[in-house]
Amino acid sequence: MNWYLSVFKNYATFSGRARRTEYWMFLLFHAIVLAVLLGLGAVVHTMIPYLAYVLATAIPAIALTVRRLHDTGRSGGWFFIGLVPFIGDIVLFIFTVLQGDPADNSYGPNPKLA
């Protein structure tokens, strides 16, 4: 749960690096919350809570992905590769799965050592 909350503490921080654990734990909790809100929306016949949550978490999720790309030594501009149909999402997935640079890189110190 700390991984999930730490993303909101860095709400719009696009600089620095994010570990794989931080990224994937946030996505896990994010998916769980989305599923619960989607189910709740189906029961009460409204998608307002779901849409509100998606809008509230869009910036932190993008910022986290950019920090994850920084950890692998890539510019945050690679985030836009996800806009390329089919291939883009696969490439972005591979970049987020890769291990981060073990040493300091131009985006900051290794978050594992901090």
Rank of each mutant, 00 (worst) to 15 (best):
V7N: 10
F8V: 15
N10L: 15
N10W: 11
Y11P: 11
A12V: 15
A12N: 15
S15L: 04
S15A: 14
S15N: 14
R17W: 08
A18P: 05
R19V: 14
R20V: 13
T21E: 12
E22G: 15
W24Q: 12
M25Y: 09
M25L: 10
L27D: 11
L27G: 12
L28W: 06
F29M: 09
H30I: 02
I32Q: 13
V33I: 15
L34C: 13
V36W: 10
L37C: 08
L37G: 14
G39C: 09
G41L: 11
G41S: 12
A42F: 06
V43D: 12
V43E: 12
V44I: 15
M47H: 04
I48S: 05
P49W: 00
P49N: 09
Y50C: 13
A52F: 09
Y53A: 08
L55R: 06
T57R: 00
I59W: 03
P60T: 13
A61S: 12
I62T: 13
L64C: 03
T65Y: 06
V66K: 01
R68E: 09
R68S: 09
L69P: 04
L69C: 05
D71I: 04
D71W: 02
S75H: 04
G76K: 03
G77K: 06
F79I: 08
P85C: 14
F86D: 00
I87D: 00
D89F: 03
L92R: 00
L92V: 15
F93Q: 14
F93L: 13
I94R: 10
T96Y: 01
Q99L: 03
Q99A: 03
Q99E: 00
N105R: 07
N105G: 10
N105S: 07
G108I: 02
G108E: 05
N110H: 07
